[in-house]
Design a protein around this nucleic acid. Structure first.
Length: 399
DNA sequence: TAATCAGTAC
């Protein structure tokens, strides 16, 4: 089925509860594991809007847009987002902002701006909230130079007053343009205007400085943040990210410091520690970090699996990588195309063709349709197409 | 409503 006007009518018709409608939480969990954009649309349309809170439906909407974007179906994205403009909630700024943000996720900034300009005729009031949605859309569309321009023009045009988040997004745009120095200057300017510099804004600049190799400046900024008490776990994670190439002992020391300062290490923290071990081929230590996640109150995320499988393959531990891959499938967090490609190639090379076929069958069920052509090529090159094999998924389910 | 999870993306 392809997305069309009938589907939009279907979505509208189901705006009240019917026996076919499902709860938003059920839709969210279904959407998380559904990569086919058409099926994602079906799930979205079956949600009863009566139960949908703004944040929940925004999440479901974002997921649906992401699935369509992954398949490069931009006209369907447009139809999908535009269909929401008939919703009576369109006069509510947060609802409208969701549409602007969604266009940004799709990289369709022109549409985001057009939608923002439309707010007058649709009767939606403007505050910093929708302005920030527009600036985020700009960042997500990777138009970093456009953010300062909008920051200058929009307040003049519409009388919107930028808030601390607007400044945070402007800071991000400078960092993304490779100019964290300019971001630091902006901090001064904002402070003079009495706009708060939040921990997220500081952390953004910290990351920007490290990325440009300005470790000295980053450390100076860290001291400023420390003095102000403007630090959280994510700030520590940025420091950890740039210490991944250090010795694992040093990474562990930094994590100790983090814990003593009262910040709970999270999954991302442990991902960095794991990577620091893997970069030195300390596979047992890395696996110990992975196994210890749960007792540290953390769950592996998609990056955990991707990193572990990727490095295990790079180091030639294909059977280990295969085991981890099976776990990732069970948790609906399977690694990306390239990592999985490394895995099947390594399995074939090591005469594990049956396992390779299992991975391949799973991939064909889980990857977005637009990647399947490229995957068919991988299969063909490895001669995996003949014969039958159970998918990893089926095997994992029966295990 | 913004920040951190490998890297050109496929």
């Amino acid at each position: 089925m392809s997305f069309n006007a009938a589907m939009i009518r279907h979505i509208r018709r189901h705006s009240t509860a019917t026996d076919t409608s499902i709860s938003i939480s059920k839709a969210k969990s279904k959407l998380r594991t559904e990569y086919d954009p058409d099926k994602a649309l079906e799930i979205y349309s079956s949600v009863s809007k009566d139960y949908a809170s703004t944040t929940s439906s925004r999440y479901a909407q974002d997921l649906t847009v992401r699935r369509l974007v992954k398949s490069h179906r931009f006209s369907d994205v447009e139809n999908f987002i535009e269909s929401h403009k008939n919703d009576p909630k369109i006069t509510q700024e947060p609802f409208m902002s969701t549409l602007i943000r969604s266009y940004g996720l799709a990289g369709m900034f022109d549409h985001a701006l057009k939608t923002y300009d439309q707010m007058d005729e649709l009767g939606t009031p403007r505050s910093a909230f929708s302005f920030n949605a527009l600036l985020s859309a700009c960042i997500n569309s990777k138009l970093f130079d456009k953010v300062p321009q909008l920051f200058d023009e929009i307040p003049k045009k519409y009388g919107v007053v930028p808030d601390e988040i607007s400044y945070g997004i402007l800071v991000k745009s400078f960092c993304e343009s490779g100019n964290p120095q300019k971001a630091l200057e902006l901090v001064k300017e904002a402070e003079e205007k009495g706009v708060e510099i939040t921990v997220i804004t500081y952390t953004t600049i910290l990351d920007g400085l490290y990325r440009k190799g300005k470790s000295d400046e980053a450390e100076k900024l860290w001291n400023v943040m420390d003095k102000k008490g403007c630090i959280d776990a994510a700030s520590y994670n940025v420091r950890l990210m740039f210490s991944q190439d250090d010795r694992p002992e040093e990474v562990n020391t930094l994590i100790d410091e983090m814990t003593k300062a009262g910040y709970q290490p999270n999954t991302i923290t442990y991902n960095y520690l794991m990577t620091s071990y893997l970069k030195r081929e300390m596979v047992d230590e890395a696996k110990a970090v992975f196994k210890g996640l749960r007792e540290n109150g953390c769950n592996p995320n998609a990056a955990t699996f991707r990193t572990l499988v990727y490095h295990l393959c790079r180091n030639g531990y294909f059977e280990e990588a295969y085991k981890i891959f099976k776990q990732s499938v069970r948790m609906h967090k399977i690694p990306d195309f390239n990592t999985t490609k490394h895995l099947v190639e390594g399995l074939v090379k090591n005469e594990k063709k049956k396992e390779a076929k299992g991975v391949s069958r799973t991939v064909k069920k889980k990857f977005p349709p637009n990647l399947l052509k490229a995957w068919a090529k991988v299969e063909e090159n490895l001669n995996l197409t003949s014969g039958e094999a159970d998918s990893v998924e089926a095997e994992a389910a029966s295990a």
